[in-house]
Design a protein around this nucleic acid. Sequence first.
DNA 1: CTCATTGTGTAGAACGTTCTCCGTATAACG
DNA 2: CGTTATACGGAGAACGTTCTACACAATGAG
Lengths: 347, 347
Amino acid sequence: MSPKDGQKTAKTDRVTIRTVASHAGVSVAAVSKVLRNAYGVSDNLRGKVTGSIQELGYRPSRTARGLRGQTFTIGLLLVEIGNPFLPGVIAGVNGVLAPSHYQAMIGVGEAQTQLETSLIETMIDYKMDGLILVAPRLPSEIVAAFATQIPIVALGYHDASAEAFDTVNTDDQRGAELAVEALLECGYRDIAMLSLGQREGHKVSVVRQREIGYRRAIERSGIEREPKIVNISVGSPDREDAMRAFLTSENRPRAIFCWSDLDAVTLLSLAAELKIRVPEDLAVVGYDNSPTSGLSLVNLASIDQSGRQLGEMATRTLLSRIEGRTAATHILMEPSLVRRASLGLKT
Amino acid sequence: MSPKDGQKTAKTDRVTIRTVASHAGVSVAAVSKVLRNAYGVSDNLRGKVTGSIQELGYRPSRTARGLRGQTFTIGLLLVEIGNPFLPGVIAGVNGVLAPSHYQAMIGVGEAQTQLETSLIETMIDYKMDGLILVAPRLPSEIVAAFATQIPIVALGYHDASAEAFDTVNTDDQRGAELAVEALLECGYRDIAMLSLGQREGHKVSVVRQREIGYRRAIERSGIEREPKIVNISVGSPDREDAMRAFLTSENRPRAIFCWSDLDAVTLLSLAAELKIRVPEDLAVVGYDNSPTSGLSLVNLASIDQSGRQLGEMATRTLLSRIEGRTAATHILMEPSLVRRASLGLKT
DNA sequence: CTCATTGTGTAGAACGTTCTCCGTATAACG
DNA sequence: CGTTATACGGAGAACGTTCTACACAATGAG
């Protein structure tokens, strides 16, 4: 009872592994072996099969693969698009993946935990081979739970104690230190930090790390002042009002380190409106070295965490885990300062 | 000596449709019917099945579904991330999809035709139910060819004659007209356009449409001057030099319409460096109404094409096609002008 | 009383891969 | 020459759905 006695191929014109097999005059299993370059394939066989694949323009079905084996796809979950450091990350991921047969599929969580988890579940349903998460607000337990089902690398997520998944970060404490140190070097003594609201207090948060670095740098400097952290939540409608209030407050600090360029650039804009000169009246250092910060209209000094390198590193880390590594690894990369006019001049 | 022999994943008892069926005491086919809400299911049966699904936390395997039926996933292909109008598009797509059981997966083509086609093919391999393409440089024949395999809606792709796929656009000709008309209204007579290099001349291109609109508005205005289009290709390393050359050229036009905010913002920055006052010495109108354009430091007037609405419309169009529509539809939406300081004052 | 018709539910064949066994041919060894 | 190892290739059972074809019961029509 051979199943191949009928001409099933007449039914549809889709080129399947069976089409390739009969065209090359070999078995389905043989073609599969070639595709996965598994053990036990002669050069002769491989030649015939790859020839047929070329000729027929065959592409293995991702869904069928997922049913049994790998899909050669990795999922990239992003909190929200529009964050200036994400394009670099994506480019890094795509760059590392390009020469391989892997591909990245991206989901955008719009900063909603529910959508984020739903997307992760979908990626798991798709039997993707691994996940890179840029989801700073996702609780650690949830990530750990997912990590039992699929290899995960978290980006911008400080949890060096995590056993189940890997993390890749720039050293955000160090980044904040760099900013503060540069401001100190320029002679400022009265240095505040613009941070996020405390919506989520877990230590995992990148913003939190930057606060720690800021505090440490201030304390270590030996200056008298207390660290001063101004909290302004990012989505809030009165965000600009809060910034104006800060800018016009009495005894406003002479220098400020902003946790993100997004805020720093808005701050610069409002300062201009209020005729506050930068850096004469207020020095500003941002974070991310976004394209906007480099415009000469803006000229914002900023901490650079190479998104591209982060993306590359995360991808390599993920691939190594897919290939069998089980011990968790936590990578910290070095940020750097990009000096621009908003910083003032070194004394 | 396979390294993965040892750590064969601990056969987790995945909850499949079969688990649900036996738990609910019905057949597999019955469960499948409930999942797809197909015909021939009693309320009683539906109740039992949905109950079991809840209780077991069952999620259908996307890959298995793809093998026979729908995957309830739509693919979104983006030329490159970082373009300021894409976040809106993504939000629009996600917004429309949220209440449905569909989800979007995004691929980023990094502006390389090869990667783009490869991603489209992957999406087809995944048996996604439909595709939204934001891939302005992809040749029309290629899109049409893919469209025979999967429903496609192209965004920012002017091809109203396409039979095989749908298009959703803002009226880019009109957008350019709006910009020029506004500049005319402000009293400028010497209005140039900053456009892209002619790397790809097909009429499909958004930039091309804007050039047409620009030309028409100039000619219709009755002013003597010839339309003047300055071409500066976007990725080029001497892009800024070319802009400087334009800005310092003799008889430089007094006003310029830029095909994109990306260029307009750079132009404004360079103008500031060269002490060219905006709008006194040079009026500028951009395109996209990007976040940057709204900063008071920049204050760039810009044509707004609501990315969000485009995304929503494209999604709805795609869904209707997935649900059976076969006739192509080509939608044109109305852009609007956002007046800001760079435009000058109405006379 | 027979024959459609309608409403519900099931059996089982796809779908296109991967992957575990297993068979065979050739080489190597004693 | 027999035995064993090695390299290559194939058969066929999964994988988790969808969906066609059919069975069965209840109802209505003639």
